[in-house]
Amino acid sequence: MLPVRTHPELSYSLSNLQMLCGPCHARKTRIEVGHKPLTPKRQEWRDLLRDLQRNPVEHERKSNA
């Protein structure tokens, strides 16, 4: 896979396509633009927030237990 940023002619080329879920796309983009990977604590926090958004009732039950 070649980045479209440096190879715009490949923008619509199926042979250069890579399907990624949202979190994997964000991680790949962070690496490509030169950001450091998230610290384990920061990633843990992000995962918790994502889980809360997906299933708020379940987290409420756990916190009240």
Rank of each mutant, 00 (worst) to 15 (best):
H59K: 07
P56S: 11
K36I: 01
S15Q: 05
R54Q: 08
R54Y: 05
M1R: 15
D51V: 02
I31T: 14
R5F: 11
E32V: 12
M19G: 11
L17P: 03
A65R: 14
W45H: 08
K62A: 13
E32S: 14
P40D: 04
W45G: 00
K28S: 03
I31A: 15
T29F: 07
Q53W: 05
G34I: 13
D47Y: 03
G22F: 08
N64C: 10
S11F: 10
L10I: 02
T29N: 14
Q43C: 02
N16L: 08
R46E: 05
T29I: 10
H25P: 07
E60V: 14
R46P: 01
S63T: 06
T29M: 12
V57S: 15
R42Y: 01
D47E: 11
L49A: 06
C24W: 05
T39V: 02
V33K: 15
Q43M: 08
R5C: 10
E9L: 07
L17S: 05
L38S: 01
K28A: 06
R61H: 09
L52C: 12
C21F: 12
C24L: 07
K36W: 02
E44G: 06
P3D: 06
K62P: 11
V33D: 01
L38E: 00
K28L: 14
E32K: 14
R5E: 06
R46S: 04
E58W: 14
V4N: 08
E58S: 11
R61C: 03
V33N: 05
H35L: 15
M1K: 12
A26V: 09
C21D: 10
R5Y: 05
P56D: 01
N64T: 11
G34Y: 01
L17C: 14
